[in-house]
Write a protein that binds this DNA or RNA. Sequence first.
DNA 1: CGTTTACTCAACCTCATGGTTGAGCAAGAC
DNA 2: GTCTTGCTCAACCATGAGGTTGAGTAAACG
Lengths: 135, 135
Amino acid sequence: MVEQDDRLSRVFGALADPTRRDMVARLAAGDATVGELAAPYDVSLQAVSKHLKVLEEAGLVRRSRDAQRRPVHLDAEVFDLMTKWIERYRQQAEERYQRLDQVLARMQGAGTDDTASADRTVSADIPHEQRGAAG
Amino acid sequence: MVEQDDRLSRVFGALADPTRRDMVARLAAGDATVGELAAPYDVSLQAVSKHLKVLEEAGLVRRSRDAQRRPVHLDAEVFDLMTKWIERYRQQAEERYQRLDQVLARMQGAGTDDTASADRTVSADIPHEQRGAAG
DNA sequence: CGTTTACTCAACCTCATGGTTGAGCAAGAC
DNA sequence: GTCTTGCTCAACCATGAGGTTGAGTAAACG
């Protein structure tokens, strides 16, 4: 599912910008209009509008209507997508780390010298971001 | 602390690329050399080397030496930084959502009509990503 | 009605990013 | 010493991202 892949790219990409992260942070406290959001930044309203488009396309934000205003609402669900991705590989890495520790401890006990290229530098045939099976 | 801000930008930015995310996923299963990492992708070794530089500068990865090889190791600690950022605002948004639900429920009970502009569209003076006080 | 408010769209500029190729460098192999 | 392997660095190119200004639209206000 390249769709999911795409989505994740857009979400991470959206949050790679400090202004956009700041907007998300502020929207967590409550909806706001474009003008309100733009106020603290030293950029044009159009630039802020663009940022919001990026956030919207990443699914982080929704825009509705209220007369000529366009209230922006944080859609916190996408956070789960990121958290899941992060958690999966964090855990995997930690488990591996612990296993390596055990291996090293055992080797120390046995007095083996060649610890370096023992279990590390794993070959490349590993599930690539669960291609076609993403949650 | 713009440093932290910067870091987060680099981390999110690094993970905004699907190839780089894939690399991280594979590195979670074990260290690998540049060549091993490059193998599955249809790009030059130099391009992969560049990607690794981005990951390294984001603090996601460390590179050591083993003769002419440069084994790459995933540094899963940065994940915490991201997770913390995400969790903070997710929770905030969820709490707010629940509070809004309560307000709306109370309003329905009282038969108030003007639910729209009641508590929503909060003004913009909100802690901006905790400037100067980031965790 | 025309004006003001709150925005978006379009065109443009600049700089960063992801890719390329070609050269170079360090360390094991011969 | 030379060759090969495994990589990095440098230069270049095309595209895209973030910024700008100027014009246009939709709804309230006078």
